[in-house]
Design a binder for these strands. Structure first.
Lengths: 151, 151
DNA sequence: ATTACTGCAAACTATTTGCAGCCTC
DNA sequence: GAGGCTGCAAATAGTTTGCAGTAAT
């Protein structure tokens, strides 16, 4: 009587609830994101990591699109490059925020819910009912401030 | 002895300080943004508005890129569509935030500096020196809550 | 006069799509 | 067994680029 469920299974369940079929290609791509939660892959990144498999690039694009619709991934735009990046959604919590260093360009994720007070203000002053938020803070990270740009 | 300066002149000065030449095409594009401050045009929007002039589309793209480098425009990504949008930077103040309605898709700008406390927390807990920020809040606007989707 | 800017059209490139066959359910 | 999914290759479309002529300083 196991209550437990691997993370992979949780995401698969989410896919099933959207009537999506489970194929080896989809599992493979999902696993790449699960094994690299701090990364923000592009479609091309995924294609490169699948070099050994026979998965076609059209499938990668279609899968990423599917995962976004289902709520497994989220498109993020770090407007510095021209590519669409994908960020794994944590099924349990609010979308996280990003700190981007203008010096070493490292992207750090933070999960604190920093915006509760902001949402309260917007709700009060603009009568806007907030459902989700995206926050990007750009600046200089600790390492770069100390003159030790990330190796 | 006029101290005053039109907004257009202020932006032109900014261009001059970057050694950019002032051409009719650049003034024309700048004026479109100045006359529609609440809009977030795409390159194509601008090209359409220049239909009557002979300005080529390559010039539009090159001009938008220049304006971004100079700090007159800022690329914004409302990840719902595949286009790059450009937002006029207010030369005086911090970059503003966006409220996007998930129902009528209207984009509202707000200028309140809502993030001072957030920046303080990030600075303290992550030793991250914030230089700029981008915040997008998605939800339901007042009109849609009342069942009166935009006009 | 010098040098940057423009317009045209061709080139690029990330992403999408049509279709025949395959695989999951 | 049926319908969604895949792979291939061709198509699409937003953006970039080369170049010769033009215009701003």
């Amino acid at each position: 009587m196991k209550q437990e469920q691997t993370e992979l299974e949780m995401y698969i369940e989410k896919l099933r609830s959207h009537k999506a079929k489970m194929t080896p290609q989809r599992i493979e791509i999902l696993n790449i994101f699960l094994a690299n939660k701090a990364e923000h892959f592009t479609a091309e990144d995924i294609i490169n990591r699948l070099e050994d498999s026979k998965t076609g690039q059209a499938t990668v694009y279609r899968t990423l699109e599917l995962f976004c619709n289902v709520g497994i991934l989220k498109k993020v735009n770090f407007t510095d490059d021209e590519f669409t990046h994908y960020d794994l959604m944590d099924l349990a919590q609010h979308f996280h925020h990003h700190l981007i260093c203008n010096s070493c360009h490292k992207v750090v994720e933070i999960n604190d819910d920093l915006l509760e007070s902001v949402e309260a203000i917007v709700s009060r002053d603009y009568h806007f009912n907030v459902q989700n938020h995206e926050l990007i803070l750009r600046g200089i990270c600790h390492a770069c401030q100390e003159g030790q740009p990330d190796e």
